[in-house]
């Protein structure tokens, strides 16, 4: 940052003035400016985060309780309720793996496709892909639940056109999770398309011209120039979608309210149940911390693998 210390420049410290007054004159407004945001942040994020760590080691219940229990909540989280949290971890990991991979490939693919188009068409397609993303996840989930309806749903209508038997998309425990994943994959990763296409648009043209002189074809150019040069965007998009997919909640909660056995439980639906149905605040906090550790670990690993030193 090249910012100049203006405060000092325009208000040179005059000797002989009370140092407190001096401090206030120099910095007072800065503190006033950051105060409201910092206050909201401290009260509603910082303190709750620290408190959540503390609760995760306590026997905290709506009424009574409150002693230290060590790692009891963590072991309880994994072992009680017939180990459904372990099931939820597996489901979430599977959901994340499939949807993130699909989102990245679809995002890259569509961004590459719209790249050669005129600005007007690029804007049109970006908008068409983006439109569903401004709608609440609840409404998207309600709509997909209807599309998946066994008796009257549009997907089974399509299947009936080719003579296939209706599928119990969301009520068959063996495929309910796959159905939820399918709905995510079919929702175009709009932010990915926008970010990738912005990154692709900023790759210097002469790189491609040089490659053409060398006789490189379009695929070769895409693989050897486009992909390496947008790597930092790819990293960003991968991390973005990984975090979002590990926090998946509305989709499963709305589409499969019953959870059809445990087959569509995810980490966040488990946290929700620990608070609301079981009133186990300590366990819920422990589960949330586990979610945080998972996300942080994966993000660090992704940064390691996708880190790039290519600058242009």
């Amino acid at each position: 940052m090249a910012d100049v210390d203006i405060t000092k420049a325009s208000n040179p410290a005059r000797p002989g003035v009370n140092p407190i007054q001096d401090f206030i004159r120099k910095y007072g407004w800065s503190y006033v400016f950051v105060l409201p945001s910092m206050l909201a942040f401290t009260v509603f994020t910082l303190i709750p985060v620290i408190w959540a760590f503390i609760i995760s080691f306590q026997d905290f219940r709506p009424r009574g309780g409150g002693g230290w229990v060590g790692f009891q909540n963590y072991t309880d989280a994994f072992t009680t309720q017939n180990g459904v949290f372990v099931e939820a971890l597996k489901n979430t990991a599977f959901y994340a793996l499939v949807t993130v991979t699909a989102n990245i490939f679809i995002g890259l693919f569509l961004a590459s496709l719209i790249q050669p188009l005129s600005a007007r068409f690029q804007t049109f397609f970006r908008a068409a892909y983006y439109l569903p993303a401004v709608t609440s996840a609840v409404i998207i989930a309600v709509t997909w639940r209807w599309l998946f309806n066994t008796q009257w749903g549009f997907l089974n209508f399509l299947l009936s056109l080719v003579g296939a038997e209706p599928v119990r998309w969301l009520s068959d425990p063996d495929i309910a999770l796959q159905s939820v994943i399918l709905s995510t994959v079919f929702t175009i990763p709009a932010a990915g398309v926008v970010l990738f296409s912005a990154a692709m648009g900023s790759v210097p043209k002469d790189f491609y011209e040089a490659a053409e002189l060398e006789g490189a074809g379009p695929i070769r150019k895409w693989w050897s120039i486009t992909l390496p040069l947008i790597k930092s965007t790819t990293l960003y998009v991968v991390v973005l979608y990984t975090i979002a997919s590990f926090e998946v909640f509305e989709k499963v909660y709305i589409m499969v309210p019953s959870g059809v056995g445990n087959s569509t439980q995810t980490i966040v639906t488990q946290i929700y149940q620990s608070v609301f149905q079981q009133f186990r605040y300590g366990v819920a906090s422990a589960q949330a911390i586990v979610l945080f550790v998972i996300i942080a670990t994966i993000a660090v690993v992704q940064f390691r693998f996708l880190k790039t030193d290519v600058e242009y």
């Binding site: 910012d3 210390d5 203006i6 405060t7 000092k8 120099k26 910095y27 407004w29 800065s30 503190y31 400016f33 950051v34 910092m38 942040f41 509603f44 994020t45 910082l46 303190i47 709750p48 985060v49 408190w51 959540a52 609760i55 975090i243 590990f246 926090e247 966040v268 946290i271 608070v275 605040y281 819920a284 906090s285 949330a288 911390i289 979610l291 945080f292 996300i295 942080a296 993000a299």
Partner: peptide, 28 residues
Amino acid sequence: KKRFPGRNFLFWIILSTLMIPPQVTLVP
């Protein structure tokens, strides 16, 4: 644009909470 004691510290604290999923604050 401004320099004031504690600026970097405050900014660092905000930055370090960005990775924490919002679900962590639900219970408190």
